[in-house]
Amino acid sequence: MTKHANADQMLLKMPSLRAVKCFVAAARHESFTRAAETLCVTQAAISRQIRELEEHLGTALFERVGRSVKLTPAGSIFFDAAQVSFINLAQAATRIRKDYGDNARRTLTLCCTPAFSALWMSRRLPSFFDENPDIDLDLVTTQNFLVMEPGVYPDVFITKHASVRDGYVSKTLFHDRIYPVCTPSYLAAHPEARTLEGLRDGILLNLSPYGRSQIAEHVDWGVWLAIQHLDIDDRPSTGSHYFNVNDYSLLVQMALNDQGVALGWDHLVAPLIAEGRLVRPVPQEMVLEETHHYLAYREESANDDALVRFRTWFLAQLDS
């Protein structure tokens, strides 16, 4: 009962939404006349609503300057809060009309890592939109799948967590294959990179673990070379650069710009290799057979038409 009482008290303390709407229009246009034209009411109606709002708040919200008006300090504070609230309401109304209205279009919310979004999704999404013109996608990227911002409830996760959240069904996709990649021109200029020792001593572009604490395993050059029985610490102390960054998309772009050798995750760089933009300087690779990527989707929506179509398209893309 207490919760209901508190909620009712909050509503009783709220000013009239009609008055707030008039206030926002007047603040945006710095004119009661323009606000009246925008809302298709009389200037007297605007003045009356704002006067009632000022009485409710107990302070002036505008200073009258000739034919225009200017927000007072209190008015500025209230305008910032009111404008954000109206934007949120307008966005919610748009989503409801789109998803539940008479001519509803379905919207699916997807969640994946920034690297998967940039290197895998971006090149394939046009085919999804071509095949499904009545489905819109909201794509959310994160490295932290276990803690999402309030109000974000993805329909689909593409993640390395076998159980990302209660109420989701997980389908096993693939495991990681990791190998060095560089451009053909970089390899031509640095033929020593064709050997493991030459690779170790050359310009290495490394994926930092910073901000990736939720990933079960982290593979960097130290780990990859250790699997090949080489020690990263044996690099010459005055040798080539060792560049560290936690943004994998940037790392791949640097490799594409002839700036060194990066570790390539096969599902992300294989198309670039197929196009000839990247090559594998050595044949060795690291295969993580015990860890997988997963497609997780809402169990309650498993038979939803839009979700079924996305799932079918996504798995077909993997097979191709």
Rank of each mutant, 00 (worst) to 15 (best):
D8L: 13
M10C: 05
M10H: 05
M14G: 00
P15R: 03
S16T: 00
L17K: 08
R18V: 02
S31M: 03
F32L: 09
A36P: 07
L39G: 05
L39I: 06
L39R: 09
T42V: 08
S47P: 00
L57I: 03
L57E: 09
G66V: 07
S68G: 10
S76N: 12
F79Q: 08
D80V: 07
A81D: 09
A81I: 04
Q83T: 14
Q83D: 13
F86G: 01
N88L: 12
A90L: 12
T94A: 14
T94C: 10
D99C: 15
D99T: 15
N103A: 13
T107Y: 06
L108N: 05
L108G: 00
L108E: 08
T109V: 14
A115K: 00
S122A: 11
F128D: 06
D134L: 04
I135M: 05
D138R: 15
V140H: 13
V140A: 03
V140M: 03
T142P: 01
P150L: 09
I158N: 05
V164R: 12
D166E: 15
G167H: 04
I178C: 07
Y179P: 03
P191I: 00
E192C: 00
A193L: 00
I203H: 07
L205E: 04
L205Y: 03
N206S: 11
L207V: 03
Y210A: 13
Y210Q: 14
R212Q: 06
Q214V: 15
I215R: 13
E217Q: 13
E217T: 15
W221N: 02
L230H: 14
R235G: 09
T238K: 12
H241V: 14
F243M: 12
Y248H: 04
L251V: 01
L251R: 04
A255Q: 00
N257Y: 08
G260Q: 06
A262P: 04
H267C: 08
L268S: 10
L268Y: 10
A270G: 05
A270C: 07
I273V: 15
L278P: 02
P281H: 01
V282Q: 04
M286D: 10
M286H: 11
L288T: 10
E289S: 13
E289R: 12
L295E: 05
L295M: 10
E299M: 02
S301C: 09
A302H: 00
A302V: 15
D305G: 06
D305R: 14
V308N: 04
T312I: 09
A316N: 15
